[in-house]
């Protein structure tokens, strides 16, 4: 039994073997991008929003609300990052119901990549917000003795993020595969439903934890101007 989609080669491009993780990641990216393009193609202020646009606005505003609640203020960069994390993980996990689809999040490589991106995003957002000195000073808080512990904490966050998401998604997929061989007509449906629920929860947890980590590294926001950090 293959535990990781990394081991499945889907196609070869210019001598580079594209495994199932990357292949299905592209599919998820394509689905998200195309859906976004279709829904937002006629987006004008004077046109009343249709059903799909309203749905998308609700999703984006929910993400924005959650992030503002955690970060203490609006931040478009954080919305781009954490929102993409949520949508990618959620879409990957929801597409589990498509027969033959291997969720990229069931690959430790994918979850590691996402955890690494969070690991890199935390200092980037922190330095952008507090400045380099201000951010580095957070490692010495409340005392310089805490420096090694803060560094370990920083890395352990990324590792825990990666392992948590991978473990949940991969275990769900593995259990579904095992049950498929034991009772192919009933348990897979139940497991798929459970997988959808777990996948959404994991997407939410992953995005929320990333937001919390990044917010803790950034200075507390006082202004509520949504355009303050618009690029």
């Amino acid at each position: 039994m293959t535990l990781s989609p990394d081991e499945i080669t889907m196609l070869t491009l210019w001598g580079f073997a594209v495994n199932a993780t990357i292949f299905y990641t592209w599919i998820v990216m394509a689905v998200l991008t195309v859906a976004s393009m279709i829904i937002t193609r006629n987006l004008r202020a004077d046109v009343p929003p249709n059903r799909w646009r309203t749905t998308l606005e609700v999703i984006v505003q929910t993400i924005q609300g959650q992030i503002e609640e955690i970060a203490g203020g609006p931040s478009r960069h954080l919305i781009y990052f954490a929102g993409t994390l949520f949508l990618f993980v959620a879409a990957s996990n929801l597409l589990l119901v498509v027969p033959g689809f291997e969720p990229p999040t069931s690959s430790l490589s994918t979850t590691t990549a996402l955890a690494l991106s969070v690991l890199v995003a935390v200092p980037l957002f922190g330095i952008t917000s507090r400045g380099l000195g201000g951010y580095l000073m957070t490692y010495l808080q409340p005392s310089f003795i805490m420096l090694p512990f803060n560094i370990i904490s920083e890395f352990s966050r990324g590792i825990s993020l990666a392992i948590r998401l991978y473990g949940n998604i991969m275990s769900g997929a593995v259990i579904a595969a095992i049950l498929l061989t034991v009772a192919p007509f009933f348990f897979p449906v139940v497991m798929d439903l459970l997988g959808l629920l777990t996948g959404m929860i994991q997407a939410y947890i992953f995005a929320i934890l990333a937001t919390v980590y990044i917010s803790s590294a950034t200075a507390p926001r006082k202004s509520s101007d949504p355009q303050e950090d618009t690029p």
């Binding site: 990357i22 976004s36 937002t40 990052f81 993409t84 690959s107 690494l116």
Partner: peptide, 24 residues
């Protein structure tokens, strides 16, 4: 794969920023 997924993720961030978040 990790490196590719990192790149994919960054591309996805850019794509969604370009086609989803900013318009919305």
């Amino acid at each position: 794969t990790v490196a590719a997924q990192l790149a994919n993720f960054l591309v996805l961030v850019w794509l969604l920023k370009r086609f989803l978040y900013r318009p919305i």
